[in-house]
Amino acid sequence: MHSDQDRAPLWLRLLAYGGIGFLFLPIAVIIIYAFNAESAGYSFPPKGFTLAWFPAAFARNDVMQAIGLSLQLALLATVLALVLGTLAAAALYRREFFGKDAITMMLILPIALPGIITGIALLSAFRLADIPSGFWTIAVGHATFCVVVIYNNVVARFRRLSYSLVEASQDLGADMFQTFRYVVLPQIATALLAGGMLAFALSFDEIIVTTFTAGNEVTLPIWMLNQLTRPRDVPITNVVAMTVMLITALPILAAYYLTRGTEDTAGSGK
């Protein structure tokens, strides 16, 4: 549905660009306040421009530890999700069998159900099994809801891939491993990369499931949440907020450009 000749009425343009403005307002605020000279409070307009809070924030042990932990977690969750999601995609595309819909549904469920349910379910299971909360429990939770992101991207790429390429490879003497290595992997590489970046971003800023599975570990979002409930270091928080946003926004943009012009699903829904 589109029209080439007519121009949008003024009110519609205002609403559209106003909507975009609304979406970016908080993002602009984060960027502005990271450079705010004020040391406490959020008064507007900002009191002055400074870069001083950046070195101050990155000199803080708690901040650097939280960043380090979140990066490690996101990396591990992404790798786990890449393996599980790719296997599931390879198993489920092109096959029809009893229970397939149920399995697809199960993959989507951790994202479809409110995060609090996934979080508390994992917590109750870990407690029941006497598994102490910590790094690994967070990673397991994150990997679980990241699988569907990889799965969606890879399945979408598989669907565009002519299966005769796989048959041609077998026909010329390749076993399953060689076919994957030389034909399938190069074809799905960008989908894996895009999906991986989305999963990374998703894990890096996840908070709801994390609060339940973290125990005493402080990820970057949990550090932010603590600051929100007991604000102490406003300028440091401002800098961290901008850092979190950059670390998640860049992979998302990269994923978008990797899959642009294709029918792949990167970014088309959490």
């Binding site: 993002i27 971003a201 800023d205 996840e206 929100l228 998640t248 926004a249 998302i252 978008y256 970014g267």
Partner: peptide, 15 residues
Amino acid sequence: VMLPMWASYIVKVYA
């Protein structure tokens, strides 16, 4: 539209 959607939830709330 996509960027604010995927941008960190907790940062948006903080903003």
